[in-house]
Simulated assay, not measured.
Amino acid sequence: MELLEQVQRRAMKMIRGLEHLSYEDRLRELGLFSLKKRRLWGDLIAAFQYLKGAYKKSGEGLFTRACSDRTRGNGLKLKEGRFRLDIWKNFFTVRVVRHWNRLPREAVDAPSLEVLKAMLDGALGNLV
Rank of each mutant, 00 (worst) to 15 (best):
M119N: 10
L124C: 02
G122D: 15
K77N: 07
G75E: 04
R70L: 15
E80A: 07
V115M: 07
L40E: 09
E5T: 10
R39H: 02
L3T: 12
G59F: 05
L44H: 11
G81L: 06
F63R: 10
I45V: 15
L127T: 05
V128S: 11
V97Y: 01
L124W: 08
A46G: 02
F83W: 14
A107P: 03
L127E: 13
L124D: 03
L113T: 14
A110V: 08
Y23K: 03
Q49E: 03
Y55T: 12
H20L: 05
L76E: 12
K79R: 12
K77L: 14
A47I: 05
R98W: 04
R65Y: 13
G53E: 10
L124K: 06
S112F: 09
Q49Y: 00
R26M: 08
L3N: 07
I15K: 01
V96D: 07
W88F: 14
R70V: 12
V94W: 04
V108I: 04
H99Y: 09
P111V: 04
T93Q: 07
S68Q: 08
K79V: 08
R84I: 07
Y50H: 15
L3D: 13
M1F: 13
M1I: 07
A54Y: 06
S34H: 11
N90V: 08
R95W: 05
L3R: 15
R72D: 11
G61P: 00
M119G: 08
L85T: 15
D109G: 09
G122S: 10
G59M: 07
K79P: 01
L127P: 00
K77A: 14
R95S: 03
F92T: 10
G81W: 05
R105L: 14
K117P: 15
Y23W: 12
K56E: 15
K77I: 07
L3P: 11
I87R: 06
L18E: 06
E60R: 12
Y55C: 08
A46P: 05
K37H: 06
G75I: 04
R70E: 13
A47M: 11
K52T: 15
S34R: 12
L21P: 03
H99C: 10
T64R: 13
L116Q: 00
W88G: 05
D43L: 01
D25P: 02
L113A: 14
R65V: 06
R72C: 10
K79E: 10
E2F: 04
N126H: 14
R95F: 09
E2Y: 02
E24W: 15
W88H: 15
R72Q: 06
K57A: 10
F48C: 11
A110N: 05
V97K: 04
I15L: 09
L51P: 04
R70M: 12
P104C: 06
E24T: 05
P111N: 01
D25M: 13
K13W: 01
G61D: 04
V96N: 12
F91S: 13
I15Y: 00
L21V: 05
A110W: 01
D25S: 14
V96W: 08
G122H: 11
G61W: 01
L76V: 02
E24H: 06
D43S: 10
K117S: 06
L127A: 09
T71S: 14
S112D: 15
W88V: 14
A66S: 13
D43A: 03
S112K: 09
L40Y: 12
E106T: 00
V115N: 03
Y50N: 13
G53K: 11
P111Y: 00
R98V: 02
A47E: 09
C67P: 13
E80G: 04
L127G: 02
K89G: 00
K79A: 08
D86M: 11
